[in-house]
Each structure stands twice: as structure tokens, then as C-alpha cells.
Design a binder for these strands. Sequence first.
DNA 1: GCGACAG
DNA 2: ATCTTGTCGC
Length: 219
Amino acid sequence: MAPPLNHPWNLPPAEARALQERLRPLLITHDAFGQVQSVAGTDLGFEDDGRVARAAVVVLEFPSLRAIDQALVRRPTPMPYIPGLLSFREIPALLDALACLRRPPDLLLCDGAGYAHPRRLGLAAHLGLYTGIPSIGVAKSRLIGAYEEPGEARGAWSPLVDQGEIVGAALRTRARVSPLFVSGGHRVGLMTAMRWVLHCCTRYRLPETTRAAHRLASG
DNA sequence: GCGACAG
DNA sequence: ATCTTGTCGC
């Protein structure tokens, strides 16, 4: 699936929000992908007071979770961090990093929200839609939605509700650690998103994909 | 006007 | 996200 999208990333806030509203109906919110042999983690680090972004992507073979490819690029940051508009700040560098890979991964675990977004187009959803790659949003903290504290066991979860809609879930990826906020991205539904996040969380709270990308982006 | 707010 | 040492706990 070649990306049928092509739009600027340095937009004024109001225009960026309007664009999200226009892209929103293009997002595929149900499972629509085949065999997964590779899962990639994405993350960013910043330099020079946030003016330069370091985008890292690490591809792990599934189910071994062994790293088989990775990419790291440094790019000027197009926008400041504005809650709800994170994708405009981070996607440009991520696209260049993804282009450096030997071949595109089968699934993306992004560091941020997916569908659990004010206009249902968080970083994971936007990046998946733009690249056509199935994606999942994995955030360490909540952007939107109300939720009850999930049970203490690994795998316990509770729905994230916004405007009367279940947009994601607070998922306990390890016993007695604060939950992760998981949401579907492009071509991946919530229940499937949670399954994949758990598949990638072996010893720590964060998925091995995210950990690997974070280490690469940090040095 | 006030509070919330991924990374 | 980033600036940063020590420190509490398994």
C-alpha cells in the first residue's frame, strides 16, 4: 500500500487540527493485516533545546524478538510540542528513519497515543495511515479518557473512555507497575493491539520494541 | 475563566 | 522530551 497522502508538517495549530479531522475518516480501525514476522519500535530523542530530533526505529523478528534491523536519523524539528499535535513534530524524522530500513516492518509499536486522541488521530494512527503500515499506540501516560485502575496482575486492563466511546485501554504489562495506555492505530483494533503489546512485553513494563528504540535514540 | 495536556 | 546525584529496593 503506497501512501496516498502527502501533506505539510509545519502547519499552524488550527490548520493541523483541521487536517486531523479530514484524515480521521481514512483511518482503518479494525484488524486488517496478515502474518507478522517483524515488529518495529519507534522513539525520538531531542537535541539543541528540541530544535533537532533523533528518530530511532528498531525492527525485531517475531516471535524471537531479536533485532534484525535498525535506523537512526537526525532532522530539524518542524513544530514545537503541542498536546494533540505530537505527530506533526515527530513523524517527519520517523519517515526518514523508516525509509532507511532494509524492508518495511509488518507492525509498528509507537511511543504515544493512537486512536486515544481528541480527534482520534494520535501519532500511531497518523504514522500508520501515512505509511500504510499497521500500527499501535503505546503511551506511558494518558492523553485523554477516563479509566478505572486496572487489576494488579499482568494482563489486567480497563477501558479508556472519551465522549462515551472506548478509545483505548489502561493495560498492566507487568504485575504491580503503573499501566500503559494502549490504543489501536491504523489497521489494528484495540483488543488485538493489547495482545501485541503483551507479546512484546517480556520482562519490563515497556515493550522490548520501545525499549530498543529508546536506547538507540538516547545513545 | 479554569483545568488538562502523548512526547 | 530534557536538565541531573543520590538513593531506596529486590
